[in-house]
Simulated scan of single mutants.
Amino acid sequence: MIRTTRRAFLHASAAMAAVTATSAMGPRLALAADPIKVAAIYTVPIEQQWVSRIHKAATAAKERGDIDYVFSEKVANTDYERVMREYAEAGHQLIVGEAFAVEDAARAVAKDYPGTAFLIGSSFKPDAALPNFATFDNYIQDASYLTGMIAGAMTKSGNIGMVGGYPIPEVNRLMNAFMAGVKEVKSDVKFQVAFIGSWFDPPKAKETALAQIDAGADLLYAERFGVSDAAKEKGILAVGNVIDTQADYPDTVVASALWHFEPTLDRAIAKVKDKSFTAEDYGAFSFMKEGGSSLAPLGTFESKVPADIVAKVKEKEAAIKSGAFTVAIDDNEPKSS
C-alpha cells in the first residue's frame, strides 16, 4: 500500500511539473532534488571489471554530494525486472543497470514508470517512443587498439591467446580493436580466440587460458578475470581490459585499456537535474577523446616496452584524441587465425 501511494505521488508531481513548465518537456521525470536518488542494478559482483567502473563513478558522484546512491549486486536475470520496479516504486530518479539479457523486461519497466530516468547498458539503441530510457556501452576500442600495439611488440612467438565472456558487440569490438593494434606492429600473428559463456567465472577463464598457453600462446588478452592468473602461473604476459590490475600482477600485466564511466554518468545526472533527460545514446562518452577511456600507465613495464613502440603508441594516442585517426568499431565476432 505504501509503495502504491508513493508511486501515485511521484506521478502526480511529475504531471504538475509538466503543466507548469513554460517550454515543451520530454518525459515526465520526477522533480530532481539535490542530491538526486540513484539506484544501480548489477547481475554480477561489483568486483567484476565492467560493473566496478560504474560503481566507481557512482561512488565518486555520491562523495561529492551530487547523488544518493544505492545498489544491488548479483541479481539474477529472472529477478532483474522485480528489482527495477522496486527501485522505481521507491522514488529513485535515475536507475542504472544493464539489459543485455533482459532487454524487453527493462524497457517494459521504463514504459511503466515515465517519471523515472533509466540509463541502461544495452546492445541496442534508444527508442524515441520511450523517452526516459537512454542506453550506454563501453566503447573503449581506442584504448584497446593501443594495448594491441604494445602486445604486438612484446610477443615473441607471435601466438596470442584471447579469452572473452560472450561474443557480443561489447566484447567483440574490443577484441577486434586489440587485434588491429597488434597487426599494426606485427603483421604475422596467430590469434587463439575463445569465449567462456560467463561474465564471472575466473576458474573457467583460467582453464581456457592455460589451454591456449599449451597451444603456444606467449601473451594473453584478459577480457575476463582468471586469465591473468594463468599468465602469471606460466610466466608469460597479459593485457588487461576495463580496469588496471597491474598492482596485483606486477610482472604479468604489461598494459590495460581502461574504461571511465564518469563522463557517461555525470551527463545523465546533469540531464536529470535540469529535467532534460531523454532517449539518448551515451556510447560516444566512452571514447578516448571524451575522457571515457585511456591507456593505463605502463608502470612496472615502463622500461621493458621498446622505446620506439612507446613513442608510436603516444603518437597514435594523440591522433585518436585529435580525431586524426579513428579506430574502427567492428562488432563482428573475432575468429582464431
Rank of each mutant, 00 (worst) to 15 (best):
I2Y: 14
A8L: 14
A15E: 15
V19H: 13
T20V: 10
A21I: 00
A21R: 13
T22F: 13
S23M: 07
S23G: 03
P27K: 04
L29M: 08
L31S: 08
A32T: 13
A33N: 15
I41W: 01
P45T: 02
Q49A: 14
Q49I: 03
W50N: 14
R53A: 00
A57D: 02
T59R: 12
A61C: 12
G65T: 01
S72I: 04
E73Y: 04
K74T: 14
A76R: 14
D79V: 01
Y80W: 11
V83I: 12
R85D: 13
E86N: 12
A88C: 06
A88G: 02
E89W: 08
I95S: 00
G97A: 09
D104Q: 13
D104N: 15
D104H: 12
R107P: 10
A108F: 01
K111L: 14
F118R: 02
I120C: 01
S123D: 07
F124W: 09
P126V: 06
N132W: 10
A134I: 01
D137S: 14
N138P: 09
Y139Q: 08
D142G: 06
A143D: 07
G148M: 05
A151W: 05
K156N: 08
K156Y: 04
S157Y: 11
G161H: 06
V163S: 00
I168F: 10
P169D: 15
N172M: 05
A177T: 07
G181E: 00
K183R: 07
E184T: 13
V189C: 00
D201I: 08
P202W: 10
A205H: 02
A209I: 03
L210E: 15
A211Q: 11
I213K: 05
D218V: 04
E223K: 08
E223P: 05
R224N: 13
R224G: 07
F225W: 11
K232H: 12
K234L: 04
K234R: 15
K234N: 03
G235L: 02
A238I: 07
A238S: 06
N241D: 12
Q246W: 11
D248T: 10
D251C: 05
V253C: 06
V254K: 02
S256V: 00
F261P: 05
F261E: 08
R267W: 07
A270D: 15
V272Q: 09
A279H: 00
A284T: 11
F287T: 06
M288Y: 03
S294W: 03
A296K: 09
G299H: 03
E302Y: 00
E302M: 12
V305P: 09
D308N: 13
A311Y: 01
V313M: 06
I320A: 00
I320M: 09
A328Q: 04
D330I: 05
D331H: 07
D331S: 09
N332R: 14
N332C: 04
N332E: 09
